[in-house]
Design a binder for these strands. Sequence first.
DNA 1: CACTGTACCGGACAGTTGTCCGCTTGCTGT
DNA 2: ACAGCAAGCGGACAACTGTCCGGTACAGTG
Lengths: 194, 194
Amino acid sequence: MAGREPRSDAVANRNRIVDAARVELSESNGAIADLKLHAIAKAAGVGQGTLYRHFPTREHLLAEVYRAELTQLVEAVAPLLAEHSPVEALIHWLARLVEYARVKRGVMTAIEASAWHDLYSGQHHRLDEALGTLLDEGKAAGEVREDVDATDMILLLGALSRIPEAEWDARAATVVAVIVDGLRPNRGARQPVG
Amino acid sequence: MAGREPRSDAVANRNRIVDAARVELSESNGAIADLKLHAIAKAAGVGQGTLYRHFPTREHLLAEVYRAELTQLVEAVAPLLAEHSPVEALIHWLARLVEYARVKRGVMTAIEASAWHDLYSGQHHRLDEALGTLLDEGKAAGEVREDVDATDMILLLGALSRIPEAEWDARAATVVAVIVDGLRPNRGARQPVG
DNA sequence: CACTGTACCGGACAGTTGTCCGCTTGCTGT
DNA sequence: ACAGCAAGCGGACAACTGTCCGGTACAGTG
């Protein structure tokens, strides 16, 4: 099941690619779309083939660059749940997500794409689990509607990744507020037409 | 303000481009990303330059292809508002949007991109107006929170465009339901952390 | 109808993404 | 040590997007 240890040069190359990406990203000031993969490969001293073998898509690379942030987000769930009610924990967690994304907009892209893509490769991304846990606790407490799952949340939160820099402060909070309010258990008031 | 009448050959070319795009789109069965602009230009018998002059981005072309559908959606607002309460009108309208998008997934892409892009060119897309009207009526009736505007809705509805074909039926309704419920006036229960 | 300017045409071209495949190199067993 | 081999490398290559500009032809004018 475990396959085999990766070769040492493969590991080294992988690290150099991520480092190069991080540098490019900080130099271009977080403009995700401006990442030139060819340039990254060159900066890392590897061929494009190597880059694409390690990171099939630009998003996989992004997710790796932001792994530290994503890990922090995942690990923040447990303490939040210990201290707050499920829904409050979710609200706090989303506030933290927004705060991260405000500074490093790339985080949102990484979350959206990586969690989504991993879903389709049949693996559970840790972020799915984080969101899933928050939602499940909320459902158990009767504070969250039953028909929403982590994937739905990722889809909805994807809206954040398309807020332009200049409007972030004005819109991010509103978008999150609408989503959170929409998670309330449906008391029959507003069923969509059948 | 009106500039000048477009030249006859320009009009003819524009039409042939849209027709060619429609054909390609129906042959590739609605796979938006598979549209090869080069191929469309060739099929229309024009150069790429001509294509790009008429439609600066792939989204502009898409919006034109789906203009009939978009117009129908816009024009459906008034009668819905005449017959239903604002929120019910909105719910019906969204149901209609989902129904369109179920068959022609490209509609969602067209809506998202064109409305969004037009917003930034300072023009009001008709779809913005449609959504804006629905929201404004809802606000006036006290049924919709004050802090949401049409742009927020477009951002949120963008979630629909990223639902994979296979999961459309399972997720579209849920996503819309969450958004609609989230539009309720906030009664102070779930303010995001300040 | 000839004339002129200008809106428009269309393909060449440059930049980027992503794939492919012959060559190289680290690992493993002897 | 050393040989064999699979994992891995890297650049050539193909595909697509979007730009640029010399040439074309439409539409007003005399």
